[in-house]
Design a protein around this nucleic acid. Structure first.
Length: 484
RNA sequence: GAUCCGCUAGCUCAGCCGGUAGAGCACCUGACUUUUAAUCAGGGGGUCUGGGGUUCGAACCCCCAGCGGAUCACCA
C-alpha cells in the first residue's frame, strides 16, 4: 500500500492527480464488444473500468479491464503508446480505474481485445485486491466489505443482477395486471399484521415510542377499503428475532391485495409470479437447488394441512374432534411440549411443522389453516369455524409465501383481536396486536379480498441457488467489530 | 439464547508429539514485443483475533472474551 501512496503522490506532484477527473467516456461495454465482435472488429472503442490483472512481457502487456458488464482484455504495446505512456501504463496497479481507447481486434489466441492507443488513469486504488484465482472466500469479509466481493467474485455480481431482475419482473407483472404500487408507513404506532416481535424506536418531538413495521398488511387493506381494488408494496419488514441462513432482521416482502378475489386467485397469482420469474431469469421451470431437482412448472400441488398431517404424521385430524383428543394424538406421535392449553388447531399446526413441513420439497400450496393462528383470515365454510381460507407456499421444505381470503367481517375481526389479546396476556409475545382503527375501516366495508405475501429474499435464494439469505442481501445484518 | 467448528502475510491456505513462522497469488527489483492462474531470477512483508494461564519454551495445551460459520430454538 505504501508503494501505491507514493505513486499517487508522484502523480499529484506532476499535475496528474487522478482524483481531479470528473467524467469519462464509455462508447462500449466489455460484454457488448464480445457479443458484437463481428460488426465491431477494427472499430475504435472506448471502455472504462477497473484493472484486474496484468500479464506483462516487457515491451508488450495484456491486462483485464472489468466494467459493469464483464471484463475485456487490453493489449498494450510500446510501439503503439510511446515510451512515456507505456512506462506509465506499466506503472499502474491492479485495482486502478482507467479509460482506454483503441481498435477492437482478436489476438493470436483468439481473445477479443482492445489495442491500447490512448488511456487515462481515472482513479487510483490504494489497497491491494484479494487474490484473483481463489477470489474472496472469507464470509465475514465478503459480507462486511461487499465491494471487494463484487469486484472479485463474478458469480456474486450475477446473483444481485438476477435479484434485481426478479423484483423488476414482479413489478412488471403486477403493473400489467392493473395493480397499483403503493407505500405505507415503516414507522408504526401499532406493529400489526403478523405474529412477530418488533423493533422499538422513539420519536423525540412527539415523545412516543414507534415500532418498525413487521408487515404492511393492515395499511394495505385500508387501501382496499379506500377503493384502489388492487395494490401492492415491495419493501422491508423488520422482525426482532433470531438470525439464520433463512432469516435476516430486515427482509424484503412483496405484499399484495386484490378485491373481489380469494385465496384461489392468490394461488394462481403466486404460480404466475414465482414460476414466471424463474422462467425469466433461468429460461426454464426445472431448477437445481443445492443438489435437489425442483420443478416450478405450474400448476403446483395443493394439499390441505389436514391431508399433509395425515400423510406425513399418520394422524387424521378429520377424526380427531376435541382439544383433548388432539393433545393426546400429538403426544402419542412424539410431539414435544404439548401444554394442557393446546387447542385442536394448535396441535394440528404443530404436528404439521414437526412432521410434515420438511417433506414439502416440490412446490406445494398448503391450504386451510387453523383459525387460532390466522386472526386476519376468513373462515372456511363447512369446517365448523375451525379452519380458515389461508395457504402458505412450501418449496424445498421452506415457506416462501403466505396468503388469505381476507377477513372482512368487522365484528369477527374484533373478536379475533380480543382472542389474540388474551393469548398475549397469557404470555404469547408474538400474538397479533389489536388495531381498532383497522376494525373501524372494516366497518366502512371492505370487499371480499384475496391477499398474498411473498418473501422475496427466499425466492431469490431459490432461483439463484444460494444456500443462505446473506448471499442474496448486499449488506446482511452483521455484528459490529470492535476495532480497538 | 444453546451446542459444535473456525480465526496464521493484503488474499487463498499449510504448519507433524509444544522447540522459536511457511507456500502460492499480490507487492518490490531485473529479464522478456501475443499472454490469459503468463514465464524466469532475486527481494521485502507477521501483535499467529484479543487477554490471561500452564511450561525452560505456546500458532499449537487450558481459561475468558470478540467475530464468523453450521445445527437447534423463535420466525418468513
Amino acid at each position: 500500500m505504501s508503494f501505491r501512496i507514493e505513486k499517487l503522490r508522484a502523480l499529484k506532484e506532476s499535475n496528474r492527480d487522478p482524483y481531479l477527473i470528473t467524467t469519462a467516456k464509455q462508447t462500449h461495454h466489455a460484454a457488448d464488444i464480445a457479443a458484437g465482435f463481428e460488426e465491431l472488429e477494427g472499430e475504435t472503442a472506448t471502455v472504462a473500468g477497473r484493472l484486474l490483472a496484468r500479464r506483462g512481457m516487457g515491451k508488450v502487456s495484456f491486462s483485464d479491464l472489468l466494467d459493469r458488464s464483464g471484463s475485456i482484455q487490453i493489449f498494450s504495446r510500446l510501439n503503439n503508446l510511446g515510451e512515456e505512456s507505456y512506462a506509465a501504463w506499466q506503472n499502474l496497479d491492479i485495482g486502478d480505474l482507467v479509460e482506454v481507447t483503441g481498435e477492437v481486434f482478436r489476438t493470436k489466441t483468439g481473445e477479443v481485445s482492445i489495442r491500447n492507443r490512448e488511456w487515462r488513469l481515472l482513479s487510483k486504488s490504494l489497497r491491494p485486491l484479494p487474490e484473483k484465482y481463489h477470489g474472496l472466500r472469507d464470509t465475514d469479509t465478503r459480507y462486511r466489505k461487499r465491494y471487494l466481493d463484487l469486484i472479485v467474485n463474478p458469480e456474486v455480481r450475477e446473483t444481485f443482477v438476477k435479484r434485481s431482475r426478479i423484483i423488476s419482473f414482479f413489478r412488471e407483472e403486477l403493473n400489467r395486471r392493473q395493480y397499483l404500487e403503493v407505500e405505507t408507513p415503516l414507522l408504526n404506532t401499532i406493529a400489526g399484521g403478523a405474529a412477530a416481535r418488533p423493533f422499538v424506536t422513539h420519536h423525540n418531538a412527539l415523545d412516543i415510542d414507534l415500532y418498525l413495521r413487521i408487515a404492511p398488511e393492515l395499511y394495505l387493506k385500508r387501501l382496499i377499503v379506500g377503493g384502489f381494488e388492487r395494490v401492492y408494496e415491495i419493501g422491508r419488514n423488520f422482525r426482532n428475532e433470531g438470525m439464520s441462513n433463512r432469516h435476516n432482521p430486515e427482509f424484503t416482502m412483496l405484499e399484495l391485495y386484490e378485491a373481489y378475489a380469494d385465496y384461489h386467485t392468490m394461488m394462481d397469482l403466486t404460480e404466475a409470479l414465482v414460476a414466471g420469474a424463474c422462467m425469466e431469469i433461468n429460461g426454464t421451470y426445472e431448477i437445481d437447488y443445492q443438489g435437489t431437482a425442483l420443478s416450478l412448472a405450474p400448476p403446483w400441488r395443493r394439499m390441505t394441512m389436514i391431508e399433509a398431517v395425515r400423510a406425513y404424521a399418520g394422524l387424521d385430524f378429520d377424526q380427531i374432534k376435541t382439544d383433548e383428543e388432539a393433545r393426546e394424538a400429538a403426544r402419542g406421535r412424539g410431539l414435544e411440549e404439548v401444554p394442557a392449553s393446546m387447542t385442536w388447531g394448535e396441535a394440528l399446526s404443530k404436528c404439521f411443522e414437526a412432521f410434515a413441513e420438511e417433506h414439502l420439497i416440490q412446490p406445494t400450496f398448503l391450504i386451510d389453516y387453523p383459525i387460532e393462528i390466522s386472526p386476519l383470515t376468513k373462515i372456511k365454510p363447512g369446517t365448523g369455524g375451525r379452519l380458515t381460507e389461508r395457504f402458505e407456499v412450501f418449496i424445498y421444505g421452506r415457506e416462501h409465501g403466505n396468503a388469505y381470503t381476507e377477513l372482512n367481517d368487522p365484528m369477527d375481526q374484533a373478536r379475533r383481536f380480543a382472542d389474540q389479546q388474551r393469548r398475549r396476556e397469557a404470555g404469547d409475545e408474538e400474538a397479533t396486536l389489536p388495531d381498532n382503527d383497522f376494525v373501524e375501516a372494516l366497518e366502512v366495508g371492505m370487499p371480499p379480498t384475496g391477499g398474498l405475501g411473498i418473501g422475496i429474499d427466499r425466492v431469490v435464494m431459490l432461483l439463484t441457488n444460494q444456500p443462505t439469505i446473506r448471499d442474496v442481501l448486499l449488506f446482511p445484518t452483521m455484528k459490529p467489530v470492535d476495532k480497538d
